[in-house]
Design a protein around this nucleic acid. Structure first.
Lengths: 197, 197, 197, 197
DNA sequence: AATGAATGAGTGTTCATTCAT
DNA sequence: TATGAATGAACACTCATTCAT
């Protein structure tokens, strides 16, 4: 909270100093840092200072690239949706039939508990959008993209049901202290898919 | 340490003054005010000041009854679960058969969009519990209570699926800009219940 | 910060409950607790709550027995002086000659570093009296009593010098990270006493 | 987040308004204000607000330059030691022989009662260091510097005794309601110096 | 006589934002 | 273009004190 020494000198304590100028990836690095803060501290825990520290950029750099906290938050959520949508599509890219689809869906639930990070971000976005209609477009886009991935195998109606159930299953899985057996997850999804349990 | 106005006088700005001592229901009123703030501003938006203003009690009264914000938040969530559990049970009290159950479930989704308040509180609790394991006991208790209500009609396994699907459907319904037709909701739930769509 | 259960019941968690009425030693217990807080947190760190907790009496009991914090502080200092004066006199009660006096004085310095508590209290009183003339009478009384003890062996003038040097030596001893050898302490006091080093 | 008055206008209540930006000496002014508060109210009486008011800077400026109160306090004490050490050295700069040294020492005691300010600061530092080992380095540095000044005339051993006695004499002088005659002070110091009284 | 609920001023600290450089 | 000093509102929390019981 005070720069005692001139920048560029004293490479000594506390990590690399900052001779950084011209840093084209900075915007992206700031957004990734923002997602990190979002996971740790929630949407309301995002502050310019925390983001700047995590991205290792000067405080002024954050306010320079993003006019307000709200803009920063929205941009970070948008980046999350872009990343997550791609990831989701990739998870189903190799799927060829219904049993394969079921496997992939079950894996989604399992992986959510293994890497809470992404799931927490998703719920943060949901809750933020519940309050801020400005984010609603983003959540709809996301939902539509997810359904489109699933609809390739099932048709729109079933895709929609699957998607809702998936959401509910992931939330339950994240909150459970004793995890449900994977067979039950599989059976629940099978039912909606019209497959034998 | 500085008495700006004599008590009882100056009803001028900002509403009625406060001759209130001895107020046994105060704790509860503070909790209800906290739930109100929670709905408006989210878990991180809870502040002693907002709660005090909404409950029409002095600031010190909030900190007196709840040693910390975390304690206040936890107590408010606990009150929500108690209220919501009772409400949920009541909604299924008159149900006698599977078609009746289906009606009641569909009504839950419909009502969530009509009275966002309670649904938002539920998701706030979920997200808070995702970060704070201390709240996990409360969410588990809540989930168990909800499943118990449903299990009366369906058995434990189906109740669990219904509960997860219900959660997902409600979230989707709350976030949708164009609401899904109620028939689709009904059909999705019917599938899990094993009823003809 | 809230008494959930009726007093007298629940002897369970957190130490003995409080069936205490009629407690004639309470005033004294409160004062001793105040001295404890004084040592830990300094004169400005005294609060009704800390004192009440340490004395295991209800908050109201402290304000009941002592009309204000200042009164409580003054009473605690007075108790300290009474205790310390007696202790000091006792330390010299068996002294019969100058060499014995020297030994006793050196012991005072040594013991100050061993039991910082009393020394810290003494300096707290000095500093408080520096600001609050109302405490000056107490410090003078204390100084006079100390000098009187020493004067029994040395006459008033030397007693006064000894007392001042003792104060300085104790302060230095308390603050030194590497303690001075006891021989040096002995030599310094010897000089004032007119004894061969 | 709320601009009550436009900057530069309203010179009305409470002194001149603040168009002050760019103020490189601000850190030092804040430290001097802190020493002022320290003298008036003691170490525990230091608050950001009192310091800000005394330095005539906004509250945020104090917290900006000093990350915590403890840091502010430590920096203020360090500044005091620097100033006081220089002053002490200056007081003995012209001393050429033992009688001159005695005069200078007696003057130190006399001046302490005349300008209590500095003496009080010294005792505040002692007491603070008694509790906070982090300040011990500062007090040791100070003691070493003082002894070094005196040792120029007397050798290390006598310097140490003189220093301790000086401390005790000053404390007694500050607390006495009826001041001791200067001759007694002189005699006490003479004894340690090995000069004829 | 004794208690603890109640109150609101005051604390340290964090922060979004502005702006001179 | 980019930075960080600067500002004041807001925050959680502590507290001396008052007062109804």
């Amino acid at each position: 909270m005070k720069q005692e020494d001139s920048p560029g000198t004293d490479p000594g304590k506390g990590g690399p100093r900052r001779p950084r100028r011209h840093d084209p990836a900075r915007r992206t690095r700031v957004l990734d840092a923002t997602l990190g803060v979002l996971v740790s501290d929630g949407a309301a825990g995002i502050t310019h200072r925390k983001v700047a520290a995590r991205a290792d950029v000067p405080l002024g750099s954050v306010t320079y690239h993003f006019a307000s906290l709200a803009e920063l938050r929205a941009a970070a959520f948008a980046r999350y949706v872009a990343l997550r949508t791609e990831e989701f599509a990739a998870a189903f890219a190799e799927v060829r039939d219904r049993p394969g689809l079921l496997d992939a869906l079950v894996a989604q639930v399992r992986e959510a508990t293994e890497r809470r990070r992404s799931a927490v971000l998703g719920f943060e976005l949901h809750l933020a959008a519940l309050r801020d209609p400005g984010l609603r477009a983003l959540t709809e886009e996301w939902t539509a993209a997810s359904r489109a991935v699933l609809a390739r195998f099932t048709g729109a109606v079933t895709a929609s049901r699957l998607d809702a159930l998936l959401e509910g299953l992931i939330l339950r899985a994240l909150l459970a202290t004793t995890p449900e057996p994977e067979e039950e997850t599989r059976a629940a999804l099978s039912g909606v898919l019209g497959l034998p349990a």
